[in-house]
């Protein structure tokens, strides 16, 4: 009997994995049935056609170059936006005049349609850099807003304690504000990664950035190669999923005990 060999925790984990596989198989089956019913790989390729497409793509070195360059753009845009968002957000949260100075800029960027930003930026700079800049412009306001919120939500009682005990301002920032802002910054990072992929690939298509995953998607569309269109889409979803999971894993690993407690409270 399995139950005699495995502990309760392992059985629970196996059940969860089994459930997830079951759900995935259900949707795959639904997709396969829809493809069989449509009966045209030009309109809706089957999961097998899509897998074959991925195998074909993987045989070409350009596939990996495209993914690598797109990944660089995503990481570059997300890294710059999160780093600057945290730094400027901390200053904005602590300094009201700086917040008033920055807020109109952030509000305008937030309300701009992504397509307008891409087209405008493409007028001014080289196509290859457009996705990176656009990713920054879309992800920066998310981080900035989250971090400013985090600063404003810092426990007033801890700040009063630090004031009474005459703690230096830099130590208050390092030991109170930054740990308080951490959960907000992590949430901003996860949002930025999710947004970053979508924005980068969209910008690659609209800016004709080469080499790129976005342009491969576009070529699949204009050559009516729907199998490859699905394959590229699948690759994007998988890349986004893996990056999100790896980031979460790294955050969990680096979390300190006390920070865990703080986030729970």
């Amino acid at each position: 009997m399995i139950s005699t060999k495995l502990g309760n925790k392992q059985i629970k984990t196996l059940k969860i994995i089994g459930k997830k596989i079951g759900v995935a198989l259900f949707w795959l089956l639904l997709w396969a049935m829809a493809a069989w019913w449509v009966d045209s790989s030009l309109v809706l390729p089957s999961p097998i056609d899509t897998l074959k497409g991925i195998a074909t793509l993987a045989g070409d070195a350009e596939f990996f170059v495209s993914i690598g360059v797109t990944l660089l753009r995503v990481f570059g845009g997300v890294f710059i936006s999160v780093a600057l968002g945290i730094f400027l957000g901390l200053i904005g949260g602590l300094n009201a005049p700086f917040y008033e100075f920055m807020n109109p800029f952030v509000s305008i960027i937030k309300s701009l349609p992504v397509v307008s930003v891409i087209i405008l930026i493409n007028l001014w700079i080289a196509s290859g850099i457009v996705p990176l800049v656009v990713t920054f412009l879309i992800c920066f306001p998310v981080t900035w807003t989250n971090v400013v919120q985090g600063v404003h939500a810092t426990d007033e009682k801890l700040l009063q304690m630090a004031k009474v005990y005459n703690v230096a301002k830099m130590r208050i920032v390092k030991d109170i504000y930054i740990p308080s802002v951490k959960p907000y910054a992590v949430s901003a990072l996860m949002n930025a990664i999710g947004l970053g992929w979508k924005v980068t690939v969209t910008a690659e298509v609209l800016a004709n950035a080469l080499p790129s995953v976005g342009m491969n998607l576009y070529y699949s569309k204009i050559y009516l190669d729907t199998d490859l269109l699905f394959s590229w889409t699948f690759v994007i979803v998988m890349c986004s999923y893996i990056i999100e999971k790896v980031t979460l894993f790294m955050i969990e690993r680096n979390k300190r005990k006390g920070a865990d407690q703080c986030q729970l409270s």
Partner: peptide, 30 residues
């Protein structure tokens, strides 16, 4: 004003720092 200690109704300790680090937080500069 730079020479006051205050024991509040609640301990007001930094949850992300150990007890020793909490004491160091107010004491180090002095």
């Amino acid at each position: 004003l730079s020479s006051i200690s205050y024991i509040f109704q609640e301990p007001r300790l930094l949850p992300w720092r150990t007890i020793r680090e909490n004491l160091r937080f107010v004491f180090k500069d002095q």
